[in-house]
Computed example of a mutant assay.
Amino acid sequence: MAVSANMKWISACVLLLLVYGFVTIMNEAAGHWAFPSPCGTGNSIDDCWRCDPNWYNNRKRLAQCAIGFGRDAIGGLNGRFYMVTDPSDDDAVNPKPGTLRHAVIQTEPLWIVFQRNMLITLKQELIMNSFKTIDGRGANVHIAYGAGITIQYVSNVIIHGVHVHHIKPTGNAMVRSSPTHFGWRTMADGDAISLFGASHVWIDHNSLSNCADGLVDAVMASTAITVSNNLFTHHNEVMMLGHSDSYDGDKVMQVTVVYNRFGEGLTQRMPRCRYGNFHVMNNDYSYGWGIYAIGGSANPTINSQGNRFAADPTKPFAKEVTKRTAGSESEWKNWNWRSEGDVFLNGAYFVPSGAEAPEAYDKTWGYGGAKTVDMVGAMTADAGALTCRKDHLC
């Protein structure tokens, strides 16, 4: 009897080791480590850090979890923590220590966190410096009813876990951009997050809505960008990627749009692309669109993979996912736009164009590939700013 009991115990241990080894091998084969935990959803970003109950003390692990073209954006990984204690924004030239504006203009790398829940109403654009992470986890942070966030000619920025909404045009004012420089800013459009000549930027797990212009706009040769896990709602022109049809400097643009939920009340530009290379992967478009979902002009390459497109059944003339916003068919028939592994519901359809050869899309691959579309619901279920508590899974 004792021998039999020992054999059962040994067999159980061997089985556990085999299972653990299999999970480890599969995670390493996928190119990242994910905790072998039931909280995994297949969302490669979230499974990298959200399964850790000690996330609060391991905040900077987040910087190792990006995928896509913005995967090398380290933000403030190599800097100290900066605690925002004051939600005010009374002086855009001489911001008070402890405010968000004082944090983002510093020249040193900083990982910026928030002492408590707060509403920050910016008087003027929040002009960020390089190597900064804005990390809203653990607090309910709203940037609203004033100016938005500007990432201009800087690199290595992560914006995570904040609500940005009801942003208004501001400007014709002096604004500080570093401890040693301030200057005159003309009128800003009222974007939630604006990228201008920026690179290595990761915008993850934010809730964005109701702004005067775009929710995420990237122009003037901005590149190496990932937009992931965001919740977009109640807005017309959601995301513009590319400055204008006359500015071919945007040929360098590479953007990954992944694991986002395009929610209620959206009309168009999810995204709208120009010139560059765009990987639109595993997003949920279940609430439909007013005009189109994915559009563009000036010969962008768009690789749409594993997305769930559901047209709004109440809008009979808004079924097409795609829209060429300029150019005749004789022009755009050569643009490389493809759909692979997408699902189309309620009459939605995608009009492809260009080459069918895989090499046409080589420059759109910032990550190893899309998951199957049946996983999209689970992977995007927690899109937007998360409710995270210390000592709990986030």
Rank of each mutant, 00 (worst) to 15 (best):
K315L: 04
N334P: 10
S330Q: 10
N336G: 15
E329Y: 11
F309M: 04
F309R: 04
S328P: 12
F309Y: 03
N307F: 00
G306H: 04
W335F: 13
R308K: 06
N336L: 15
R338Q: 09
K315R: 05
N307E: 01
N336E: 15
D312E: 02
R338L: 05
G327V: 14
R308E: 01
E331N: 07
S330P: 13
V321W: 00
G306P: 10
A326L: 09
K323C: 14
A326M: 08
N307I: 01
G306S: 03
G306L: 02
F309V: 05
N334E: 06
V321G: 03
P316T: 02
K315P: 02
N307M: 00
K319C: 07
R338Y: 11
F309I: 08
G306Q: 01
W335G: 13
W337E: 04
D312A: 09
T322L: 00
W335Q: 09
T325K: 02
N334R: 08
W335C: 12
R338I: 04
W337K: 08
K323V: 10
F309S: 03
T322I: 00
W332A: 11
G306T: 01
S328Q: 12
A310T: 14
R324W: 05
E329W: 05
K323L: 13
S330L: 13
A310I: 10
S330R: 12
E331W: 13
R308A: 05
F309N: 02
